[in-house]
Design a protein around this nucleic acid. Structure first.
Lengths: 112, 112
DNA sequence: TTCTTATGCATAAGAAAATTATGTATACTT
DNA sequence: AAGTATACATAATTTTCTTATGCATAAGAA
């Protein structure tokens, strides 16, 4: 996430959420999907993405499958069973966090 | 912010926002206010808070004033003029970020 | 034909921003 | 006497980025 330098710590949750909806995705596809959804405002760098994917795989949350497409390698990632559970947990935690952050940013609503 | 380990990078914005509303606050007060507003879900640690306050002061965004209250030192922080401007900017950036994050977490709404 | 952009993965060096642990000090409660 | 609350501060470590670099193929522009 280059443009804003905000919200370090949410990348893994974003990845898990996207994979919850898409069955399988490859790295480059994830960067493009995020860019598309956020109208170009989030740019996930490879230096952040690939280490994060590798870590999630090492933790047993993602499984991989490599394909050759048009003479290029694609490494597809899918949620494991544990990954699916963790996706729910992490998304819920992040949403909870956002609610609290909104209370801080918008105290009139929060304490109304 | 100990409990969730999320949203690293938003602490400075939270501080600026609180000071935008409160004229002046001291460190311990900030930790208690955040805890109160978020019903105990955000716990700002001293190890995060004080370095962040010092940095904001070094950047000219905050000014300080020390008082003795009941035999204890309190260091009050206030927004400078530049701090006030920066508070607006950072809050707007964070809100913008949250909008995009919501699009990722709630794609059905985002692309509706 | 050469350069740039796009596609696709990966790692290393460095910076930023936390966590955790520690230290000092006063005051109140158990 | 020990623990909790108030109040500030810093150091060591960890996490998670950014930036830079590297490899490789393909397509389009100059």
């Amino acid at each position: 996430m280059s443009s804003s330098k905000l919200l370090k710590g949410s990348l893994a949750t974003i990845i898990l959420k996207l994979l919850e909806e898409n069955e399988k995705m490859y790295g480059y596809e994830i960067t493009q999907r995020v860019k598309e959804i956020t109208a170009g405002e989030f740019k996930i760098t490879e230096g952040a993405l690939y280490p994060s994917l590798h870590k999630l795989e090492a933790e047993g949350l993602l499984s991989t499958e490599t394909q050759m497409v048009e003479n290029r390698v694609r490494k597809y990632y899918s949620l494991t069973k544990e990954g699916n559970a963790e996706a729910h947990t992490k998304v819920a935690e992040l949403e909870d966090f956002l609610v609290n952050l909104q209370k801080l940013l918008n105290p009139k609503l929060g304490l109304g």
